[in-house]
Deep mutational scan, measured.
Amino acid sequence: MTEYKLVVVGAGGVGKSALTIQLIQNHFVDEYDPTIEDSYRKQVVIDGETCLLDILDTAGQEEYSAMRDQYMRTGEGFLCVFAINNTKSFEDIHHYREQIKRVKDSEDVPMVLVGNKCDLPSRTVDTKQAQDLARSYGIPFIETSAKTRQGVDDAFYTLVREIRKHKEKMSKDGKKKKKKSKTKCVIM
């Protein structure tokens, strides 16, 4: 069974824990209790493949930012979460993405942009803004509501699919490099 290491990042209060708990335990946590770091595991079937999701729910508070490099190193894919009623959390996505790329030393890291709290009427981040940002990053965008469960499975499952595509691409690139290195030079 394939294991996928997913990391949920975003500013404090955007609903990272609520999304994760909704996926794992099928219930909505409405009281806000700032996370330092929590880890969850769940076995699911995605596109006919049974897999184990190892999900790291991270601290959004700035005082825990020193811990970010460590979990970013171990993560295979990242859910970059903002709240649709919090423009600052949307603007912060850029910083999370840049930090992930720096730590992973790669421009090509599996990510999904997630606009959470889409059940709320007080939207300050337009869907088109988020779609445009995701398009500019070359990553999928999904709106979710941890409260109603809308888009929750889709967000995590899409990230797994992005990781699969990335692994497939990397193995193809690896095979191309191996083929090239088999060419021999004969000096007579």
Rank of each mutant, 00 (worst) to 15 (best):
T2F: 10
T2G: 13
T2N: 14
T2E: 14
T2A: 12
T2W: 07
E3V: 08
E3P: 14
E3A: 08
Y4K: 08
Y4R: 11
K5D: 13
L6R: 01
L6C: 06
L6M: 13
L6V: 12
V7S: 09
V7K: 01
V7D: 01
V7F: 15
V7A: 09
V7Q: 03
V7R: 07
V8A: 05
V8R: 01
V8N: 01
V8D: 02
G10L: 02
G10T: 00
G10Q: 00
A11C: 14
A11Q: 09
A11K: 05
A11T: 09
G12F: 08
G12Q: 04
G12W: 05
G13T: 12
G13N: 12
V14A: 13
G15D: 00
G15F: 01
K16F: 00
K16E: 05
K16M: 04
K16D: 00
K16I: 02
S17P: 00
A18E: 01
A18Q: 07
L19Q: 14
L19F: 10
T20W: 02
T20F: 08
T20P: 08
T20Y: 02
I21P: 01
I21D: 10
I21M: 14
Q22H: 13
Q22T: 08
Q22S: 11
Q22A: 07
L23V: 08
L23F: 14
I24K: 05
I24W: 12
I24P: 00
I24H: 09
I24F: 09
N26Y: 15
N26Q: 12
H27M: 12
H27R: 14
H27P: 01
H27L: 13
F28P: 01
F28T: 02
F28M: 05
D30F: 10
D30K: 09
D30S: 12
E31I: 07
E31G: 06
Y32H: 12
Y32W: 13
Y32A: 03
D33E: 07
D33P: 04
P34W: 02
P34V: 12
T35V: 02
T35I: 01
T35F: 02
T35D: 00
I36N: 01
I36D: 01
E37H: 03
E37N: 00
D38I: 01
S39G: 15
S39N: 09
S39P: 01
S39Y: 04
Y40C: 05
Y40M: 06
Y40Q: 06
Y40I: 03
Y40L: 06
R41M: 10
R41A: 08
R41V: 08
K42R: 13
K42F: 07
K42L: 10
Q43V: 05
V44C: 11
V45F: 05
V45T: 08
V45D: 07
D47N: 08
D47T: 06
D47E: 08
D47K: 06
G48F: 05
G48C: 04
G48K: 12
E49N: 09
E49D: 11
E49G: 11
T50E: 04
T50F: 04
C51E: 07
C51Q: 05
C51W: 13
L52M: 12
L53F: 11
L53C: 11
D54T: 04
D54I: 03
D54G: 03
I55T: 13
I55V: 12
L56I: 05
L56P: 02
L56V: 06
L56A: 04
D57W: 01
D57Q: 02
D57E: 05
D57P: 00
T58I: 10
A59K: 02
A59Q: 15
A59I: 15
A59F: 15
G60C: 10
G60I: 11
G60E: 08
Q61P: 10
Q61W: 15
Q61H: 13
Q61R: 03
E62Y: 07
E62G: 11
E63R: 02
E63G: 08
Y64P: 12
Y64I: 15
Y64V: 15
